[in-house]
């Protein structure tokens, strides 16, 4: 939701980044305020996933210019874990499997790392269990998942629900959902979207990275941005997504190429 006079959560200015010497982001600008839900759409290879990974601090991506301010702090100077601890969360497009670590232990370690930074006491297994049971409801997850190894043998939908469960526990200020909808059937998509909607508050912000407009029927964005060739080329309200769905990306690309050329 758009909230009057709310503070800026994330401010991205002229961000450029490369991977193995190949420029991918070529000047991204984006401003996200508390309470807002933004969606970044774009064709394959436009740089949307790179953008989310750069925000989360993936070591394979090298920032070559621009700045990213998260709640007044220079995000680019922070280690990935510091970003997480200060409230940035990324739901992975392909959540990793970690054999030998139970989901419950993993969630508790993550939860406690956030608490430690907040100056709160770390929770033992017993107290944590109570909290996690409650959060399972958000994504309608069976408690038996807690005793299985992290994501090991999970279906695509189960992995994505597990990501949202982590989001529910970590209560981030900024949640970046990287193609959380891709590969999901409609039932799983509804559960995931419903979970995200429950977690959206006037104090946090959500950035959806998606290839498909379908997700936006269930999580309604306040702003839609179109990314192409490493730039945000146009922005609008939720109706932009519908137009993209019916007309495809080509018309945006054409219109904006000429616009950029005119500048």
């Amino acid at each position: 939701m758009i909230v009057e006079n709310s503070g800026t959560v994330l401010s991205v200015r002229d961000l450029t980044a490369e991977v193995e010497g190949t420029p991918i982001l070529k000047g991204v600008n984006l401003e996200i305020k508390a309470g807002e839900i933004h969606a970044i759409m774009g064709p394959n290879g436009s740089g949307k996933s790179t953008f989310s990974k750069v925000l989360a601090g993936h070591p394979a991506y090298k920032v070559t210019g621009g700045e990213v301010i998260f709640q007044g702090n220079n995000l680019l100077e922070m280690e990935p874990e510091e970003r997480a601890q200060s409230g940035v969360f990324m739901a992975f497009q392909y959540p990793l499997e970690i054999p030998g670590v139970t989901n419950l232990d993993f969630l508790r370690v993550a939860y406690n790392s956030r608490r430690k930074v907040q100056g709160l006491e770390e929770l033992d297994a017993f107290d944590f269990d109570e909290i996690v049971q409650e959060k399972l409801e958000v994504v309608k997850m069976n408690p038996t998942f807690l005793n299985r190894s992290v994501n090991e043998g999970f279906s695509g939908g189960e992995k994505k629900r597990n990501e949202i469960l982590q989001m529910a526990l970590l209560e981030p200020k900024l949640a970046i959902l990287d193609e959380t909808d891709s590969g999901l059937d409609i039932d799983a998509l509804k559960i995931v979207a419903n979970g995200v909607n429950q977690l959206a508050t006037p104090d946090n912000a959500i950035l959806l990275i998606t290839h498909y407009q379908r997700l936006l029927n269930y999580i309604v964005p306040d702003f839609v941005h179109v990314m192409a060739d490493g730039r945000v080329i146009t922005s609008g309200g939720k109706e932009l997504a519908l137009e993209l769905e019916s007309r495809g990306y080509d018309w945006v690309l054409e219109e904006n190429v000429s616009e950029v050329g005119a500048k």
Binding site: P95, P99, G100, V101
Partner: peptide, 25 residues
């Protein structure tokens, strides 16, 4: 590296992340 990053993105520092993975193994 991606496993280590996944754990870092959940708040573990690189050493703890590596330890967790080695311990699990």
């Amino acid at each position: 590296d991606d496993e280590v990053f996944y754990l870092q993105s959940r708040g573990l520092n690189a050493t703890d992340a590596r330890n967790l993975l080695v311990n699990a193994f």
